[in-house]
Design a protein around this nucleic acid. Sequence first.
DNA 1: GATTTCATGTAACTTGTTACATGATTGT
DNA 2: ACAATCATGTAACAAGTTACATGAAATC
Lengths: 204, 204
Amino acid sequence: MREQLETLTEGNETSEGSGRNTLRYIMLGLLWARPMSGYDIKQTFERAIASYWNAGNSQIYTTLKNLHKAGLIDAEIIVQTSRPNRKVYRLTRAGEEELSRWLQEDVPERFTKDEFLAKLFFCGETSDEVALVHLRSHRESLLKQLAHMDWARREYGSRPVRRPHLLEYQLLVREYKEAVLKAGLEVTENAIARLEQRLNAPSS
Amino acid sequence: MREQLETLTEGNETSEGSGRNTLRYIMLGLLWARPMSGYDIKQTFERAIASYWNAGNSQIYTTLKNLHKAGLIDAEIIVQTSRPNRKVYRLTRAGEEELSRWLQEDVPERFTKDEFLAKLFFCGETSDEVALVHLRSHRESLLKQLAHMDWARREYGSRPVRRPHLLEYQLLVREYKEAVLKAGLEVTENAIARLEQRLNAPSS
DNA sequence: GATTTCATGTAACTTGTTACATGATTGT
DNA sequence: ACAATCATGTAACAAGTTACATGAAATC
């Protein structure tokens, strides 16, 4: 049914096997904007991206090595005296092309995973009290995420930008995420209120 | 604050290493409600859970084997003549206890991953036209998910239920998911409108 | 004196995805 | 004839997580 084209003509330097490699492309996207070290990348994740994608240091550093091996980024060691040396990476021409290809590629419809909803789904199998605990701590989590977005906006959102066109879409993503968090918060708060009323009411 | 009871008396048959094992618990939760085969479980995912958690057949069948080996579920083969035989699993006492433990356990704050937002974030590095394509197909995807929820509600939402208490939380999860999808849809549609206007307008 | 920040990584493991494999029956 | 439904799996690989390791400088 499905022909085996991938084994034929391609020299496959990029080793595009299966898998989506989203992290690789995010990192290429970040390095396109400016050269960075693994440490810088991790920080950018925390500041701006963590709410819809994140990666640990280990993944970041191994991915940087892979990208380098694949010829998509160049490395340069910045010697520092009173700090550990930095390894700063920048996109190569091939890297730019890969990134541009990915940006134009369709996003497949993929499910998101949400452990909170998964657990809530089964809360009928335990008690309302347990459900209430989960809902309350989820509310705290949502509020914390919203506060973090506010903080990031104040701290990093309004300073002069190298590439103003980038900012527009970054703001859109923020707007999206914020709307989604607020919608979730509203449902959560309503559910908490209902449960509290039921648990406090002199039961029938 | 939180005592470390788990390290004391437990002989840890369940081999709780690292990892969250969310899929295992979801499957325990499903089997608590009624005995099911791997096939049934897959269908339940598609119908009711896929929008915030999903798993392929391969993962489902291997997880069933693991749960069985761990003594959390029992297996029974139902011989069928005009169909392949079914292997129906049901929770053991140990399985019920595991599930109950998980339900009471806190949900850690974990990031969600969203490839659409990740790509959108970098759309300033390509053209508005490309971004518009992504936004439009995301809109279609959201509408499809909302339509699927409607379909599931009509098809499976209103028939008599074995355990009515379960339903309440399942409806809450649905309400949550629906609110979140709608909030995303609104932002998406606004962004599409803005972009369309800009691209059609005789530029300044 | 303790903690945080800067800075880079390795090893071991778990989880998730894709592709492949099989095969009868029922509906269009 | 063709596709879909029922039904269960294996193998190979990619991606993600946790734990561990190091070590100087700055801040509290």
